[in-house]
Design a protein around this nucleic acid. Structure first.
Lengths: 251, 251
DNA sequence: GATCCCTCTGCCATATTATGAAACCCGCCC
DNA sequence: GGGCGGGTTTCATAATATGGCAGAGGGATC
């Protein structure tokens, strides 16, 4: 029925993956000690797992400093993953068009576990928005893309953690109020967020569907909240819905 | 001195990774039976590993067909890996410039294990070359980028497999003759390959170095061999060397 | 409707495999 | 020199993964 079954009997793999996931944009390099502590694993175990990963090029070790970082093998697998879902290639022209026509920044995002990953981004004319966000992940409840996915894929709502941390002034922190919003989102076909992810930032998003109606990701347009008032957001929402419809492959 | 040490004692991880690596551009989706057979693992074991990977979003399972594919989590990790080595961001403008000035296709490649991975690519004016090669991997001995890496990083030559498969008319299949070529490459600073990877395709490449002189990847320009004669190749090689020098960060 | 193939799940005895404490190095600083 | 904070290695222990088997569920094909 639902996904991410909690497996049993492969914890070496789980631990290895958890190590990989410790690397973030803020901490692109970590020492063995750091990794060991952050993961809660024994130093020896950590070391052994790292060596295994390193032998597969998923982890690089800076020979001089001795610190570890994500390796080229992950790039390879990641690029492979990107390529095998041709989502990005398919959507990119649309991102460009949206960015050009609206002047704001358009992004393509996909759900990864319980957050949204920015897969691609085309900056708009107004270069206020910080570019280079590709690869960052945001919690679902605070983003327009996340909310639209929550709205159209019921199981994601169940998987949502109980506490919704506040990231900005108007972040939804109540699951009940969020559920209420989703009804409206389903009705209109797109989601909005204003000062929910970051103060002064607003965005609108809709889902991207495959030929069979399966949800594959979300398309969004974002910019300064002052420039994206209610009327503008409604207009962008409609534009997004049209764009998404055109992205839908033939059956 | 150093190498990817053949580890012992984490074969669950190794097996899991080997499963991931089975997915190629030609086989982006595989069934349990296929994976099990291709990896030589017991079906039960394969299934268990897949579930573990799936729970971490490294593997996606198409719910209807039941077949597996690389998951969004890998995109996340891959993008993260790309970001943490800011190589791609740094080199991209240079790729564009090279493509524009030469009219040919420029690529950025990095070594992954014993092959070259195309990280980024900018198509030239002459749109003969097949685009969209990002993510593909080629053997080192048959590419200009691979050869230039072999030339400047001795340990890679040792790690090269004994048999060098022929991919095209003029592929180097003798390790000795290859070693001979490397001397010349080291002297000139760039490598060439003509009808070695694919009949009718030629390329020129040079290494990209970090602030400390560490080799980070390779830069190449490629196109139809008939358009890239000896003189042209020499010219391109010089241009590449200049470009690479400019890419070198300050110390 | 019967049959086949494949996935998924569970069970369980086996021993292979991972584990982590402790010890060992090594460069560094006091 | 002596202590210290890493990283690395060793080794006895037992926890863990393994894979054979078997059965349920689902799609296909015949």
């Amino acid at each position: 029925m639902n996904d991410s079954s909690p497996p049993q009997g492969a914890q070496a793999v789980l631990r290895a993956v958890s190590l990989l996931k410790l690397f973030t944009s803020e901490q692109p390099e970590m020492s063995l000690a750091q990794l060991s502590q952050a993961s809660g694993l024994n130093k020896t175990t950590t070391h052994r797992l790292l060596r295994a990963l390193q032998s597969q090029a998923l982890i690089d070790k800076n020979a001089s400093t001795g610190s570890y970082s994500l390796g080229a093998g992950l790039m390879a697998l990641g690029v492979q993953a990107l390529a095998s879902s041709d989502l990005r290639r398919r959507v990119r022209p649309m991102l460009k068009m949206l960015a050009r026509e609206t002047g704001e920044t358009a992004t393509l995002e996909v759900p990864v576990e319980d957050s949204m990953l920015i897969l691609d981004e085309v900056a708009g004319r107004h270069v206020v928005a910080a570019a280079g966000n590709i690869g960052t992940r945001w919690p679902m409840h605070a983003t327009s893309t996340g909310k639209v996915l929550l709205a159209f894929e019921a199981h994601r709502m169940e998987a949502l953690p109980d506490s919704l941390p506040a990231l900005a002034q108007r972040t939804m922190t109540s699951k009940d109020m969020l559920a209420q919003q989703l009804v409206e989102i389903r009705k209109r076909g797109f989601a909005e967020s204003t000062d929910e992810l970051e103060d002064g930032f607003a965005a609108v998003a809709t889902v991207i569907r495959g030929a069979l109606g399966d949800v594959q990701g979300a398309l969004s347009i974002g910019g300064p909240s002052q420039r994206l008032g209610p009327a503008k957001r409604a207009e962008l929402g409609a534009a997004l819905c049209r764009a998404a419809a055109r992205l839908r492959p033939e059956y």
